[in-house]
Amino acid sequence: MTNANQPETRGKGGVNGDSQGTLLVAVDFSKDSREAVLWASREAEHLGCGLMILHVVHDPASSPGFYRHVEVDWLRPMADLAREMMDVFLRETRAAHPSLTALATAEAKLVTGLPASRIVEVAKSINAPLIVIGSRGRTGLTHILLGSVAERVVQLAPMPVVVVKGHEEGNGTVH
């Protein structure tokens, strides 16, 4: 594990550090995701590149009804609810960190599909030098059976992937 606050640490492929491409951070609106966004914003500013915040609309198999956790009009499509969650997530994160310019100007994107493969697909399409993703730590049997989206992304992505853990603020793992 490497301290991800040191941007010179590189995984396979390396990060160019120029303004080519857009850094991609994938979120599921969790605490870990918030940390991932903050880390990615600082990194984007450091690299001088843009930032895309991506959410893949997908109801997780382990907790169906992810988008309907609050009382809402059940006739609203999940993608609409996801967009609303993204808006709230961005508004709150930006309000808490007004100094992060990359965060203020980041593009928010929603696509539907299976999270891991979609994240990698989007990253490739925007020439992302790096994918940043929050890790929801699963342990024990659940971990063995299911793994995590972050792990799948690490397996699939041709570019470096940074996995950020929420409870160890500022720390991430470069794969």
């Binding site: 198999a61 994107k109 493969s117 299911l146």
Partner: peptide, 28 residues
């Protein structure tokens, strides 16, 4: 049910996101 979901997602993967489906802004 979770394993069923995983299995079926493996059997029926997503359609590729074509350039058309994803039209991110380039100049903004």
């Amino acid at each position: 049910t979770t394993q069923f979901a995983r299995l079926v997602e493996w059997i029926v993967p997503d359609r590729p996101l074509s350039e058309m489906e994803l039209l991110p802004p380039r100049f903004l």
